[in-house]
Simulated scan of single mutants.
Amino acid sequence: MTSALTVLAADFGSWKPDDWSAAASVASTVLTLLAVVIALLAALYARQQVTLARQLREEQAQPFVVVDFQDNPAMRQGIDFVVENMGQTLATNVRIVVDPPFSSTLDDTGFPLKDAPLIAQGIPSLPPRKRFTALFDSAPERQATDLPSRYIATVHFDDAHGRRQEPLTYILDLSVRRKLLSVSEYGLTDGVQALREMSKTLKEVRSELTRERHRQAAIERASSEARSGDTAVPEPEADPT
């Protein structure tokens, strides 16, 4: 049988039935190989898509524990330390390692954050969207000290099945909060302070009104007594005889 190269190089007008049969075989083989290659590429692409979809589902289903500093909603210029599971599944055995250990101007109150169970012992379970908030410090008081402004927090945790997850590291930098323009928000503490000042002012006004009332009453009594003395009829003098 004529080889494939001979068939391809031959003059089509002089081809014999065997030549056409060989050409058909070559074409069929090439098409079959192309179909196999296309099928393999499609299978690889489909497998890659399945793998990516599975990885995306796994990532979306994993817990995601975040730690950060945030503004305290009730205390002006107060700083909160927040721990929250922003993932879609339960986080377990949550441990937070902070370097250097937390230090605050509020440590003297008897509740230093570094010794709180949240840091010292960890969190046994943290459901999705569950948040723990702890008052960390007051910005004005802290700025007047030489306490650290930068902490590195590493969060270790397991998923709902007890499988260890990749640790997450956060840089908590308080210096980025300085010299930032912001709108003043008045919270509960400001409201309580305003009510106290209002109550004090009302007491002073009430006392002043009471004193003024007493003064006016005294003036009226004195005026009334004076008028009574002027209109009194004098008693007749006794006859000496």
Rank of each mutant, 00 (worst) to 15 (best):
M1N: 02
M1V: 06
A9V: 08
F12T: 14
W15C: 06
P17R: 04
S21P: 01
A22R: 09
A23L: 08
L34A: 01
L34N: 04
L34M: 04
A35V: 03
A43D: 10
Y45V: 11
Y45W: 05
Y45K: 07
Q48M: 06
Q49E: 13
T51P: 03
L52W: 10
Q55R: 13
F64M: 09
V65L: 05
V67F: 01
D68A: 14
A74Y: 13
G78H: 02
I79Q: 11
D80F: 08
E84G: 06
N85V: 03
G87T: 11
L90M: 04
N93D: 10
V94W: 08
V94A: 09
R95D: 01
F102T: 07
F111C: 12
L113N: 05
Q121H: 10
G122A: 02
P128M: 07
R129W: 11
R131Q: 05
T133C: 00
L135I: 09
A139T: 03
L147V: 02
D158I: 11
H161G: 07
G162R: 04
L168F: 04
T169W: 03
Y170F: 15
Y170V: 08
I171T: 13
V176M: 04
R177I: 02
R177M: 13
R178A: 15
V183W: 01
E185R: 14
E185Y: 02
G187D: 10
G191H: 00
V192K: 06
E197D: 10
L202I: 11
K203Q: 10
S207C: 09
E208Q: 02
E212L: 14
I219T: 14
S224M: 14
S224Y: 13
E235I: 12
E235D: 10
